[in-house]
Each structure stands twice: as C-alpha cells, then as structure tokens.
Amino acid sequence: MRIGGQKSPYFIFILPSLIILSAIIVFPFVFNLYLSFQKWDIRFRGATPEFIGITNYLKAFSDTRFFNSLSKTLYMLSLAVPLEFFFGLLLALLFYEPFKGRRLLSLFILFPLALSDAVVGLVWGLVLVPTYGPVDYFMRILGLWDLLGFKKPISLVTTYPMEMIIMADIWQWTPFFYIVLLAGLASLPREIIEAAEIDGAARFNVVRYIMMPMLKQVIGVTLIIRITDIFKTFGLPYVMTKGGPGFASEVASLYIFNQALQFLNVTYAATLTIILIAAITIVINVFIRGYRLKF
C-alpha cells in the first residue's frame, strides 16, 4: 500500500492478524459452504463426500422441524431481548445516581453474567423442579397452585418450556444491558440533563426525550449483539429441556447440533448453518436500516 507516494508499513503489521482471522473465520465458513453441497455419511469408515448440488437446500426448505426451530428462536427473540433491555435500562437508571452500597449491589447484579449457559440452565432447572425446588415449595405453602387453578403441582419446565428458558435467559443477560447502558448514561453530558431538570422537565421526559436519543447508538449496538446471541442460543435449552418436550423448545442451533452430532448428518447440518447465517444477516440488516444505526 502506498500513502503519499511512500510505502505504508501498516499492511504488513496487520497481515498476521488477517491470516489468523482468515483461518478461524473465513476457512470454516467456506468449508461449511462446501459441505452444504455434499452428501457424506461419516459414520461409515472410508466414506467420502459426494457432490449433490442444492439437494440439501431443497430438503431444508421443506423441513418443517427446521422451521419449527426457527419459530422457537424468533419467539425467544421477541420476548427475551425487549425484556432484557427494559429491565437492564430500569436498573441502569436506578443506579445512575450514586448511593451508598451501589458498587456492592452492582456486583450482585452482574453475577449471572459470569456464569456459563450450562450452569445457568442447571441452576434454573433445580429451582423449578417440582417437589424438590424452591419455586414449587413456595407455590405450595402459599396455596398458589390452587389459586391458579391447578389440581396438583405442575412441572413448569415441561408445561411452559420456552417461557422458562426465556426467564433463565433474562436472568442471565439483563446485567449485560444494565452495565452497558449504565456506562452509556455515565458518558452523557450532565449539563444538558441538569438544564432540563432545572427547566422543570419530569424525570420520565428527561429519560425519554434527552437520555434515550443520546444513547441511541449504544442501545443499537447492544441490541445487535443480543439479537445475534439469541440466534446462537444453545446451552440453556440443551441443559434445561433438550429441546423438549416433543419439539416445544427445540431452537435452531439445538436442531443443528442434533443433526450434526447426534444424527451425524454433518452435510445437512452445514446447510442449515448457512441458512441460519443468512437469516441472521437479513434480520440484522433490517434492524440496522429500521433503527437507522450509523457506523
């Protein structure tokens, strides 16, 4: 590269990173794309890939189980992200003004974020399990099962599997919105907010008309991160329900996992992955345009 008639050394400095990134991002994607056009039964020793064109794609577009898994993922997206954002913003606004013990309380709020999906799934599974779990215990001693019209205690995880997974996800990821939005709020110019308050603006209106517009970019980026994360959700449904009962909580990435590693249909799983990547790209692009996010 030449800049101002002189050779730029910058390219050479970033070349090693480019090579590594190509290896870990570009190569797997290209290999995945290659596999999506093959048929390869790896369970048999000596089996080799066989080119089959777009057969896998045609199969995917008539796979009702795949569409069911996409619908579960979109259901999770439609509930989890807005609620995580709402609770995270609420917490950020509450913690915006300093008070005694704020830092310590923040640590407790951030704790779920430090846990892996598997641990969160296990913990919530234990909390919700009938007979032994605390939720069932309190529901029984407070007579809430009767109040809600249940003849006997029910298993919340098997009756409302997606909702319980979403609840666990909200518990785990609300702190992410909290900390990012709190950082965003802290970076806002105080003079503007104080000026509005002096002028008699209500707190709600300060948040709505001054803080939120100034936080637009930050909010946009956090939403993109979480939207992408939801499409990748695997740990919680795997640990809590294995996608069941039936197909009730089989999200897209769990179905792809089953195809690849349980059923050994690796080339079909590769096809579903490509389609999922395309779906995520479309959703993110629609969001960026609709939200008018600027980079």
Binding site: R43, T158, G244, P245, G246, F247, N258, Q262, F263, L264
Partner: peptide, 22 residues
C-alpha cells in the same frame, strides 16, 4: 441400526407430545 439416534429421537418426541395430550 445406523441412525438409531435419529429414529429414537423422533419416537421419543412424539411420545412426549402424546403424554402431554398435544
């Protein structure tokens, strides 16, 4: 049988749907 995981996965899921009276 090869693919046993796939066959039994499907059977199990439909059994669960029947047990839940779906």
């Amino acid at each position: 049988l090869p693919g046993a995981a796939q066959y039994t996965d499907l059977l199990s899921r439909y059994i669960m749907m029947a047990v839940r009276k779906e």
